[in-house]
């Protein structure tokens, strides 16, 4: 059961869930860095800076800053810059953001032909395709794995005509081979198949 004093914090949690999670992740990184830094040795002989000095200082700094940021989001709810010179900047930034989002609302579907919901999922699919391409590098080679990724992105993810997708992929492959292989002489791995 939440006490009345905790109510603003609960409301802030609902409003700023992603901010809070991101800041908590940073705090955790700070903690890990501090602990590991202590293991590296903060000082060496003669009280001189050791390999763990900077990790500990920076780790502690992140931990404290993340803690303060969490406190600010949960309990203060106010920007530190309110009423300052930087507030002027943020007012303009806010205005521009509203202008940009206003134009977004005017069209349900963007030029990709995606709705807002589809847009949320698209980056996830693309990251998955990129991960698959990276895993395929050893098997089919660097150029071919990314050529497959490009074709898949255009034809399957973006639902463009297959022949246009293949043409675009061929153009991209030609560009990469000419620049990196022919001009720069970089040995691009051709994988177990050894095709390109």
């Amino acid at each position: 059961m939440s006490t009345p004093a905790m109510a603003p914090a609960m409301a802030a949690w609902k409003r700023h869930r992603s901010d809070l999670i991101g800041t908590a992740v940073l705090g955790t990184v700070g903690t890990i860095a501090t602990v590991m830094g202590l293991g590296y040795g903060v000082f060496t002989e003669g009280n001189r800076v050791g390999p763990g000095f900077l990790p500990v200082v920076v780790g502690l700094f992140i931990l404290v800053a993340a803690g303060l940021e969490l406190g600010r989001i949960l309990f203060a709810g106010r920007a530190l810059s309110e009423g300052s010179v930087m507030a002027l900047v943020e007012d303009v930034e806010q205005e521009a953001a509203e202008q940009i989002s206003e134009t977004r609302r005017e069209e349900q579907r963007d030029t990709f032909g995606r709705t807002a919901k589809q847009r949320n999922w698209a980056p996830l699919y693309i990251f998955a395709v990129l991960a698959a391409a990276l895993l395929l590098v050893d098997l089919v080679g660097l150029v071919l794995s990314f050529a497959l990724a490009v074709a898949f992105l255009i034809i399957v993810i973006e639902r463009r005509p297959w022949w246009v997708g293949l043409l675009a992929t061929a153009g991209a492959v030609a560009f990469i081979v000419v620049i990196f292989k022919a001009l720069l002489g970089i040995p691009l791995p051709s994988g177990y198949l050894g095709l390109i």
Partner: peptide, 13 residues
């Protein structure tokens, strides 16, 4: 949709 796959490919290579 034709541009970004190329940019991504160029980035990795």
């Amino acid at each position: 949709p034709y541009l970004y796959p190329f940019v991504l490919m160029m980035s990795f290579i």
